[in-house]
Design a protein around this nucleic acid. Structure first.
Lengths: 226, 226
DNA sequence: TGTACATCAGTGAACGCGCGTTCACTGATGTAC
DNA sequence: TGTACATCAGTGAACGCGCGTTCACTGATGTAC
């Protein structure tokens, strides 16, 4: 009802100020609404308190705006994952913390998460995809690499395991988002059990070719602790 | 270019004939196009060789049509999973076969798969959701239940494990769909390793409270075989 | 300190488009006599 | 067997709508003199 107009216009040099507000507004729309289709140039403009043509002073077209929204979103994922790692020296602890952090992030922003994944298609792959590759993927990879060094599995499997754990975290989060009606119980407890189980599987799978069986037995014991 | 018109019109009683053709056309559109937005009443009508208003003789509105498309899709998933189970007496073999079948189905119809999951929202949950619950979910549940009987894990964990394995299959399939640029290699080999690893994890997790350690050791050995 | 001017962030009105949906209709089909 | 008629699957034209985007403009802001 209250269509609030922009009070003062931005000073000369600072076009990026409004650009940021526009990305904020589009992001807010995706957080509030249940459908990504609710994000229209007009809706964004109204939310910022500006007329539709103003958007085009800061973004070439709607696609460019949505790319910017995704980029910002993945940037925030990066920050959250960095926080999840902070202060955890033990790589196994860190791996679980990263996975849970990823799931929590997705569950906190379900529509955005889905939208961000849906946007990755052939033509804008280079833009958004590389940003994601530089956030979640990198965090997972580093930690999984350290686990390999600690003897949890052969270094040759690191790439496989990164994909596997990412798939697991993505699968848990997106099934929870898509089908909340299933009997998930306490969201995060169940999710953590699942992640532990996936880690366990890898440890056991590598047990035959392991160079440090004692270290492995240690991982097994720790993962089986609830 | 060739806008083909419907040759003959349906005989008196058989309105369902065109209804089926309409669902076919909408499904084909989702298989051909890369975006679900490409499915419009007009596009469907053109594909069938009929005028847009004809659609409304068979479906109340666009939503009802899309529900019917999803229902048919999940019906086909049901058939495919039934085929995947056929002739496999061993429940572990069957569980892996079901998982792989699910993943293959999703990869064969990526846009439809995404669309079908995206349609599950608060208001049409009852329609589409229950159909899915009666296909993939039931197949998984039955087989996981048999594995519990065989001593692979306690019966109390069956519900958890169904969700976990479904999450795993869904995660692998949908990450493959969303991010084909990742280094997946031979699609299905990697997917199968992942499923085996997830199964393994559960076995090991339950090892402490197991009533039949020998049976468990058997599952472990079989899952670790490539 | 005061005035004329260039800059440029944001506006208002309009465009063409494809959409979902409606409504009065048409004309082939099957039926009753 | 032949004709009049009711049925109803499908049509053609149109509706109102919200969309992304454009273009000529306005008027506050900072600058030069």
């Amino acid at each position: 009802m209250s269509i609030q107009r922009r009070r003062t216009r931005s000073p000369r040099g600072s076009g990026e100020l409004l650009a940021d507000e526009i990305i904020d507004a589009a992001t807010d729309l995706l957080l509030d609404e249940k459908e990504a289709a609710a994000v229209s140039i007009r809706a964004v403009a109204t939310r910022v308190g500006v007329t539709p043509p103003s958007i085009y002073l800061h973004f070439a077209d709607k696609d460019a705006l949505l790319d910017a929204v995704c980029a910002r979103y993945f940037g925030q994922l990066d920050e959250q994952m960095a926080r999840a790692e902070a202060g955890l020296d033990d790589p196994l602890e860190r791996a679980l913390s990263l996975g849970m952090s990823y799931i929590r992030f997705a569950l906190d922003t379900p529509v955005l998460y889905r939208q961000a994944f849906a946007r990755i298609t052939a033509d804008n792959l280079s833009k958004v995809d590389e940003i994601l590759a530089a956030s979640a993927f990198v965090h997972f990879s580093r930690t999984v690499g350290e686990l390999a060094e600690a003897g949890m599995f052969p270094a040759s499997q690191v790439a496989d395991i990164v994909l596997e754990w990412w798939s697991a975290a993505h699968g848990i989060a997106s099934l929870m988002i898509s089908k909340p009606s299933l009997n998930w119980g306490d969201d995060l407890a169940r999710a953590e059990t699942m992640l532990r189980s996936v880690c366990l599987g890898r440890v056991v799978m590598g047990v035959a070719e392991c160079r440090e069986p004692d270290a492995l037995r240690g991982f097994l014991a720790r993962l089986r602790d609830s």
